[in-house]
Nucleic acid binder design. Structure first.
Length: 532
RNA sequence: GGCCCCGUCGUCUAGUUAGGCCUAGGACACCGGAUUUUCAUUCCGGCAACAGGGGUUCGAAUCCCCUCGGGGUCACCA
């Protein structure tokens, strides 16, 4: 069998859709699984805008996730160029050939005429097909129209006497009746190709063996098959994978319906994370990011492995128990026959659970490296986020002392860091002042006898020659015993006084992290706040 | 509406090709409980599904038929 060649062909929209990323991943995996080639081709036949700006985020997503492409933008390849906007010659030549061979025709009908035909067909409850009036034009008349530059499109002459059948890797046999297919436009009146046409030319030219794409393209398939046949190409194999659905629904996940998705609890939680994090790291207006975009996950501090694992399991499974896959595992085990047929609803919670798993696999240094940029951007520590694109996400010029402190903090935080941006929930270790959780403060500090207990403990540890978990704990135990109070009372009060919140590492760790001088000041302040 | 696709716990899914190993398994979420005097982790336990109806069969989630439901697509978009 020939080498497997797959492609992903995004149009430059300015962002990478998470569902599109899943399609790209499946293409990439199938190529890698077979030791084949993965191609990135840019479908920009309809784009007049700034390509660099619109393509940047897409390439960025591939790079972030580590899905390299063998041929395409930046790397070139034997079938360059990989931008459809630069392949016009190829399409024109193919269209001319079809025209010459009588497999396509120039259609001079106006949009109004066609619209009318369509309405009539609808009124008569029959399927609309092209009326092909231009076919009755004489050769001379056509030549004259062309010479006059009379506006027209080129349409494929659909052979109405046949059935189109494909053997889809996922859907098995699918059949259409060509008699019901209107003649598709393949070249616009401005001479540019349409998607279906350009795709067919390019897939054949680039020797694509497997067309793996979302099922919304299933209805394009008969047209493409007909086109391949008209051009004498061997058909690629098709695999129409289900689209990624909106959380808790079967509808295609769409960027336009964000507000609606927010009604879903898990999706809202995911949105809230960005809303909380982005303003802190200088992404005003959340940087225009949302959870439908791959970049959202990068910016909010996901790991590529977490996102990849989540995407892989959306519509694919190996067996009845395997959940965790590294990219290498996925390459080894991915096959098209294990792709599910039904649309898979995007589940932010499940994605988070994969993320959580992969976070535990990180070394301490890797965690620190991932968290530092957030602290720098939020202005909690000094340092610089590298400006080199290749070093994106790296920081430099962080004082050694600071780095050591952050390392200690992250060690103490342990599993509490699920996303790199979670480090920002610990700002009170970096700032002078604390912000109290008022409810907790009144519950645990502003209580009868607690201020005195705190104050006494403060005096006691102020005298301590050495602060360590052991000495602080011993001091607390004996202080509570001497005052006839339960250790819990003091522990909670201490935590709220020194960090402001009822969550975080062990209280003695907190004390050490906050530091002796600052801890004493904070306890004093909390006592003052209660006693006036 | 036409064409096409799909239908197992709330969600992701195993099981359907070769009917019995399925009183339907796992994971996420949720709810309990244990550990951690917080939180998170970890560990135990619980809740929860074959869209419906007919067949075929000793036996059906699995095979056949019908119904219902959901979705995709119907452009000089991709």
């Amino acid at each position: 069998m020939a080498t497997v060649r797959t492609r992903f062909a995004p149009s430059p929209t300015g962002y990478m859709h998470i569902g599109g990323m899943r399609t790209a991943l499946f293409n990439w995996l199938w190529a890698r699984h077979n030791g084949g080639t993965f191609i990135l081709r840019i479908d920009d036949t309809d784009q007049q805008r700034n390509i660099d700006e619109a393509l940047g985020p897409i390439l960025r997503a591939f790079k972030w996730l580590g899905l390299n492409w063998d041929e395409g933008p930046e790397v070139g390849g034997p079938f360059a160029p990989y931008f459809q906007s630069q392949r016009g010659e190829l399409y024109r030549a193919a269209a001319d050939r079809l025209l010459r061979e009588g497999k396509a025709y120039r259609c001079f009908e106006t949009k109004e005429q066609i619209e009318q035909d369509r309405k009539l067909a609808e009124a008569e409850k029959r399927q609309y097909v092209s009326q092909r009036r231009s076919l009755e034009l004489s050769e001379a008349a056509i030549q004259q129209f062309v010479a006059e530059a009379k506006p027209h499109v080129v349409r494929l002459l659909v052979p109405r006497d046949q059935k189109v059948v494909i053997q889809d890797h996922i859907r098995d046999r699918v059949e259409w009746d060509a008699a019901l297919i209107p003649d598709p436009v393949i070249m616009r009146s401005d001479g540019s190709p349409l998607y279906n046409f350009a795709t067919v030319i390019d897939d054949a030219h680039m020797q694509i063996t497997h067309v793996i794409r979302a099922e919304e393209h299933l209805s394009n398939t008969p047209i493409q098959v007909l086109l391949h046949q008209a051009l004498g190409h061997t058909l690629p194999e098709f695999a129409h994978i289900p689209y990624v659905a909106a959380p808790g629904s079967k509808e295609k996940l769409s960027k336009r319906k964000l507000e609606q998705y927010r009604k879903n609890v898990a999706f809202k939680r995911m949105c809230d994370k960005g809303d909380a994090v982005f303003p802190q790291i200088g992404l005003g207006g959340c940087g225009g990011l949302d959870p439908v975009m791959v970049e959202y996950y990068e910016r909010v501090g996901f790991l590529p492995a977490g996102v990849l694992n989540g995407l892989l399991r959306l519509g694919w499974s190996l067996d009845d128990k395997s959940e965790i896959f590294s990219l290498d595992d996925a390459v080894k085990q991915f096959t098209l026959d294990r792709v599910i047929k039904a649309p898979a609803g995007f589940d932010p919670d499940k994605l988070l659970s994969y993320q959580q798993h992969w976070m535990t696999q990180l070394s301490l240094d890797e965690k620190v490296a991932g968290c530092l940029p957030y602290l720098v951007k939020a202005g909690l520590i000094v340092g610089q986020v590298s400006s080199l694109p290749s070093q994106e996400g790296q920081v430099e010029n962080v004082p050694l002392e600071t780095r050591e402190f952050v390392t200690r903090l992250i060690t103490a935080l342990g599993d509490r860091i699920k996303l790199f941006s979670d480090i920002l929930d610990n700002a009170y270790f970096f700032r002078e002042e604390v912000v109290y959780d008022e409810k907790e403060f009144s519950k645990r500090v502003a209580k009868e006898g607690v201020a005195a207990l705190l104050s006494g403990y403060r005096d006691r540890i102020a005298e301590l020659p050495e602060w360590s978990v052991e000495t602080l704990e011993a001091a607390l135990k004996s202080h509570c015993e001497a005052n006839g109070q339960s250790p819990g009372t003091l522990i909670h009060a201490l935590r709220i006084s020194t960090t402001g919140v009822p969550i975080g590492p062990g209280v003695y760790e907190c004390l050490l992290l906050v530091g002796k001088a600052r801890s004493l000041r904070r306890i004093e302040a909390a006592v003052q706040r209660v006693t006036g």
